[in-house]
Structure formats: C-alpha cells, structure tokens
C-alpha cells in the first residue's frame, strides 16, 4: 500500500517530517530531559555491571582488591550523576506560559520558543549519548583494572588513569550540553 492511498485527507500527517515539526517545543524540551537522564543511566548501569561482575570474580582469589576497585564503580556512577545534573538544569528551564488560554497569545516569540525546545532536546541527547559511551568505556577499563590489580597491585594506578580519561568523555558531553542549553529560555508571555 502506498502512503497516498492511506491518507489523502488534509487532516492526516504527511509523514514523519510533519510529525516532528509539529511537536510542541515543550514536548521536545521534556524529551531532552528524558533522554539526557535515561541514556546517562543506561551508560552508568552498563559500566557498573561490566566492572562489577569482573570485580567480584577477581576478588575471590585476591580479596584485597575489593574495596580499592570500588573506585571503578564510582567512576561509572559519576556518569549517572552527570545525567542527573543536566536533567535538573534542563527541567528548571522549562517554564509554563503565564496565560492560561487555549492558544498562545498574540505576538508570541515563536523563534525563542522553538529555539528553546530544539536546543534543550539536543542538549539532553548530547549528554545522554556521550554518557553511554563514557559509561561503557569506564566499565571495560574498570573490568580490566580489577583483573589486572588482582594479578599485580602496581598496575592499579596505571589503569586508573585510563579510567579517568574514559570518565572525562562524559564531562565533555555535559560541558557542551550546558553551553547548548544556556541560551534556551522558554518565553512565558508575549512580546510587547
């Protein structure tokens, strides 16, 4: 079935482009928060089980590593915290319009309105995707760190530096995300 056969009425959506352009900026902004927080936590959780399963396994024969290597888990947890910080910043920027009417007022700042919506959506996505990458990366390094530390304690600090660099990837994401969302302010009343 071709698409024009299913929908010839003008009230139908004309494809995905129309759906996306007609989404409310408030919707975009809130999705930005959801993706930013959700993907960050996926990254953190992924990293924690990568590290955690190796950590408990390696700790069977070398119990001394168990507290020291919790730092790898904390590094993964940091990715989740970046997501939470970003989510809080973004949520605070979403503001309800002052007028309670069904339509937006005359002279509404549509440019700023859409700019804010798209900007916060992208900011959330930037933070979320970088934090997935960072979380997995810290997790793999942390898993190797636990195993290496069990064999040779002098390797711990060296691999920890690798982990710090992997963790820094998430910071890049949050810095760019904050800059992206900085200029995004939802108009709350019409321009005079």
């Amino acid at each position: 079935m071709s698409s024009d056969a299913t929908c010839s009425s003008e009230y139908c959506n004309q494809g995905w482009a129309e759906v996306l352009t007609h989404m409310s900026p408030y919707g975009y902004a809130n999705f930005g928060v959801a993706f930013g927080l959700g993907l960050s936590i996926v990254g953190a959780a992924w990293g924690i089980w990568l590290t955690g399963s190796s950590l408990v396994g390696a700790a069977v024969k070398a119990p001394r590593i168990r507290s020291k290597n919790l730092i790898s888990v904390i590094f993964c947890e940091a990715t989740a915290i970046y997501g939470v910080i970003m989510a809080i910043i973004l949520t605070n920027k979403i503001k309800e319009p002052e007028s309670a009417g069904y339509f937006l007022e005359e002279g509404w700042d549509y440019n700023g309105y859409y700019y804010a919506g798209y900007g916060m959506f992208s900011a959330g996505l930037s933070v979320g995707l970088t934090n997935i990458a960072s979380g997995v990366s810290v997790g793999i390094a942390g898993s190797s760190c636990a195993i290496a530390d069990a064999q040779d304690a002098s390797l711990f600090v060296k691999i920890l530096i690798v982990e710090i660099f992997a963790s820094a990837l998430g910071i890049f994401g949050i810095i760019v995300g904050i800059i992206q969302s900085n200029a995004c302010t939802f108009p709350t009343f019409a321009l005079q």
């Binding site: 089980w49 990568l50 399963s53 190796s54 950590l55 408990v56 396994g57 390696a58 700790a59 069977v60 024969k61 070398a62 997790g139 898993s143 636990a146 195993i147 069990a150 064999q151």
Partner: peptide, 15 residues
C-alpha cells in the same frame, strides 16, 4: 560480562 564476566574473572584470579 553479562553472562561470563564472573567466571572469566575467577579463572584469571586463579592464574
């Protein structure tokens, strides 16, 4: 590591 992380770390500990 989903399935085999623990076992692998065990055998590496045994090394």
């Amino acid at each position: 590591n989903i399935q085999h992380g623990f076992a692998e770390a065990l055998v590496r500990g045994m090394r």
